[in-house]
């Protein structure tokens, strides 16, 4: 189909040398192509402030409502303690060094469990995503496992392994592995089909394609899976610690919570819940959020984060 000749016919590209007119055009194109300098964002502290302010306000409002409800004395003290009373329990626990021990017991378990889950789930996810028979055989099972509350595994784990760390790690793994696997599978499924082709065209074998194309391309989905896997590790751990209480297991946050219930000490129960929440939010904000943000930024996928 003939095109309108809006542009002058360029010099016929014969010979090896370039003609000066073309060189000038190229230079002009270069100047146009030069990326504009990135505009400076808002100043650092102001950004931090505007990011931190809304959640802080929400927290203040929450405590204020709590305080008001407590002051109205609708419920007896043992059901709804004052915010200050809970704060004192937490503060005492930290001052006596007990809190650090409790946090350490739980957090290090969750982290170890999570890391093992990552090591198990990553090759597993690759297998499910890339090998069709494996996928049709156990793909639905993995998705199903994700919806099974991991607390359901605690009785079985205790019967199989006894009241020890193995039982706890078993529950954590069963909580986290399906999430991470599913995240990786979803991440791989959403890879634009052109990218594996690019890999093949550039001469990547199966392993190199996984290493250089599939895994990096699936990284956003994989990260989402990791984040969810961490959340599941953490809640599975709490479920396990809450139910499987024994001196051999040490005092973790779940056991701390369970003791609160046994002693009918509502302040301790609420303190434990707040600490569990705090760890969850802390890990999300300090570990996952920055990594996710960096990964998405690097690909030009600046979402709402």
């Amino acid at each position: 189909m003939p095109r309108p000749d809006l542009v002058n016919e360029p010099g016929a590209p014969t010979g090896g040398g370039r003609d000066p007119g073309l060189a000038a055009v190229e230079a002009g194109l270069d100047a146009l192509d030069a990326p504009a300098p990135a505009s400076q964002g808002r100043r650092g502290w102001r950004r931090t402030l505007s990011a931190a302010l809304p959640p802080l306000l929400a927290l203040v409002a929450f405590v204020a409502v709590w305080q008001a409800l407590w002051a109205s004395a609708l419920w007896p003290e043992y059901k709804l303690p004052a915010p200050l009373a809970v704060w004192n329990v937490v503060w005492e626990a930290f001052r006596e060094g007990e809190a650090l021990g409790i946090l350490w017991t739980s957090v290090h378990r969750a982290v170890i469990g999570f890391l093992v889950a990552v090591v198990v789930a990553t090759p597993f996810g690759l297998l499910v995503a890339r090998v069709r028979p494996v996928r049709s055989a156990i793909g639905p099972l993995v998705t199903g496992l994700q919806s099974l509350p991991s607390v359901a595994w605690v009785p079985a784990a205790v019967l199989w392994f006894g009241l020890n760390d193995a039982a706890i790690y078993f529950v954590v793994l069963l909580g986290a592995v399906p999430s991470i696997t599913n995240g990786l599978v979803a991440g791989i499924e959403q890879i634009p089909p052109i990218l594996p082709r690019v890999g093949a065209a550039l001469g990547a074998n199966r392993w190199e394609s996984a290493r250089h194309i599939l895994l990096p391309a699936a990284l956003p989905g994989y990260l989402a899976g990791l984040k969810q896997g961490w959340a599941f590790s953490w809640r599975s751990l709490m479920a396990a610690e809450l139910i499987a209480v024994s001196p051999q297991l040490g005092l973790g946050l779940g056991a701390f919570l369970q003791h609160g219930q046994a002693l009918s000490d509502m302040t301790q129960v609420i303190a434990a819940i707040l600490l569990i929440l705090l760890v969850g939010i802390g890990v999300e904000l300090l570990a996952f959020r920055p990594v996710e943000r960096r990964v998405l930024r690097a690909r030009g996928l600046v979402g709402v984060l």
Partner: peptide, 29 residues
């Protein structure tokens, strides 16, 4: 030799810089 392909879209790997994209086939070789 194995043909070099330039696809209909640029199909660059979005997580690599331009230079790394160009390097990739050499790296694979």
């Amino acid at each position: 030799a194995r043909p070099a392909v330039m696809f209909q879209e640029a199909a660059l790997l979005p997580w690599l810089t331009a230079a790394r994209n160009v390097e990739l086939p050499l790296r694979l070789a």
